[in-house]
Computed example of a mutant assay.
Amino acid sequence: MTASATAITSPSAPPRGRRPLPGFSLSLGLGMAWLGVVVLLPLAALAFKAAGLGAEGWLRAIQDERVQASLKLSFGAALVAAVLALLAGAVVAWVLVRYRFPGRRLLDALVDLPFALPTAVAGIALTAIYSQNGWVGRYLEPAGIKIAYAPAGIVIALVFIGLPFAVRTVQPVLEALGREQEEAAASLGASRLTTLRRVILPELLPALLTGFSLAFARGLGEYGSVIFIAGNLPYKTEIAPLLITIRLEEYDYNGAIAIAALLLAASFVCLLVINAIPQLFRHERRGGNR
């Protein structure tokens, strides 16, 4: 067989047919151009405007009591909701992976519903459920448990939109993990709690941290599903994204830019953490293997 025939029949040789996309350089240039126009350019403009405020402008905008109250509410509610979404998402992912039952595919599809459902629709539905005359609120309000138009309602809305992130980050790891390690631990006499703590959780920890970071970043900037159930009371249930809109309506552009830049910085930190988590655990495992 000649060299040319070997190159044609070799499975490692690239196909010579026309590719549906142009060459690498042109494809990379087009992709980066679209990314720059759609994503990087608006973010760069916000960063440039925020840098132009100066230290005095930043302090004046952030030290406002109303701004501080909204930031505390947004960060606190996003943190609590991310923890709850992580716990619930891990349980849902475990059920979907380890059990077979009627309606499993329907439950798996419902996990992605918050992705497809408009956030305003989700906010209206949650308000209708937990308001004073809602299906659930009519029983909670007489007992002194207020959900709608209270911080608790904001947390519930953020859990609703953050749950899919937790499920979809943990689910593939559980599927790849299998049951061999659990069966080996059980054969060595390990209890269920020991198996969960020493075998399963170390493998799931990177995915759990990633799901938490995604849910937190998503909840931090959530707007549509929160404003209906929050009540939007200044100093009480007013979130930071809503205050940005209010500042723009008041023509306080510097205040809006300062709040938006702070939320953007927090989101970037979450993204950096998400990207650093796999590298960190790979490094630790290599060090442990040595």
Rank of each mutant, 00 (worst) to 15 (best):
S267N: 10
L243C: 07
P164N: 04
P278Y: 02
G288Y: 12
A13V: 08
R247K: 15
I147K: 05
P241M: 06
Y139F: 15
S225H: 06
L84H: 02
F281N: 10
L87K: 04
A256V: 01
L264S: 11
E56L: 10
A215I: 10
A260G: 06
R104Q: 14
F48P: 08
K146M: 13
Y139W: 14
G31N: 11
Y99V: 13
P114M: 02
I259R: 05
E65A: 15
F165N: 00
I156N: 03
I277W: 01
A125W: 02
Y251D: 15
R100M: 08
A150L: 06
P22A: 03
L242T: 11
L243R: 10
P172R: 02
V226R: 04
M32N: 09
L214A: 03
A266G: 05
A61V: 12
L30D: 05
L79Q: 02
R286G: 06
F160I: 05
E182N: 00
I8T: 11
S131M: 07
L35G: 02
I274P: 09
V95W: 01
L262G: 03
L201G: 06
A47M: 09
E249Q: 15
A33P: 05
P14Q: 04
S267G: 10
Q132E: 12
I161Q: 06
R198F: 09
L188H: 07
E249G: 15
A116H: 08
P164W: 02
A47K: 08
P14T: 09
P206N: 04
R105L: 13
A157R: 10
Q63P: 10
G89I: 08
L233T: 12
I161E: 06
F216N: 04
P102T: 08
K49S: 14
Q279H: 12
P164G: 03
S187C: 12
A176E: 14
G153P: 07
A276E: 07
P202C: 03
D252Y: 08
I227P: 02
I227A: 01
S12G: 11
E284F: 14
E183F: 09
I277Q: 07
R104H: 11
T169Y: 06
L158C: 00
G103Y: 09
N133I: 07
L126Y: 02
L71S: 05
Q171L: 12
R197K: 14
V91A: 08
S187F: 01
R66Y: 06
A215V: 06
L163F: 03
A230E: 01
G36W: 09
A186F: 07
A240D: 07
R247F: 15
P42C: 01
V92W: 00
L262I: 12
R197H: 10
I244Q: 11
G287R: 14
R100E: 13
V199H: 06
G89V: 02
S25L: 15
L196I: 13
M1K: 12
I257M: 05
L35Q: 08
A265N: 03
A7W: 12
V226L: 01
G211V: 04
V111N: 04
L110H: 03
A45P: 09
P102W: 08
L158G: 00
A81E: 05
E141T: 15
